[in-house]
């Protein structure tokens, strides 16, 4: 297939860029994510997870079942920042949600 074919729709990363990450030593979906932004878009890898796993499996000559999945973080859905202001009094709560907001800067 044409190497310029988009794999991650949200971040618009193509096959070539993913294969480059693999050439540079990426083993897992999360490696590719860190190197290319694949999976960091607004759908949070719900669409590109599987196609990327297939490319990893092909490249490393593995079975699909030996290619794991990426870590998924909260919030599970793209929601607006203000929405996260939870009413809970449990301080743990604020910290879990607070943390994931910093990491998931795409989730407005």
């Amino acid at each position: 297939m044409d190497k310029s074919t988009i794999v991650c729709r949200c971040e618009e990363i193509n096959i070539d860029e993913i294969e480059n990450a693999l050439k540079n030593g990426a083993q897992t979906f999360d490696d590719i994510k860190r190197l290319t932004r694949t999976g960091m878009g607004s759908c949070q890898s719900k669409v590109c997870l599987h196609p990327v796993r297939e490319i990893i499996a092909d490249y490393h000559n593995k079975d699909l079942q030996d290619v794991g999945i990426s870590r998924m973080r909260i919030p599970l859905k793209p929601i607006r920042m203000g929405t996260l202001a939870t009413e809970s009094k449990d301080s743990n709560v604020a910290s879990v949600f607070g943390e994931s907001v910093e990491e998931g800067d795409e989730n407005r």
């Binding site: 729709r9 949200c10 618009e12 878009g41 719900k46 669409v47």
Partner: peptide, 22 residues
Amino acid sequence: VSRKLFKARGLYCANGRCTSCY
């Protein structure tokens, strides 16, 4: 259009998962 390359986007999953339909 998409964020980076300004490519056309429309309905893809119809299920609130892909965000193509913004």
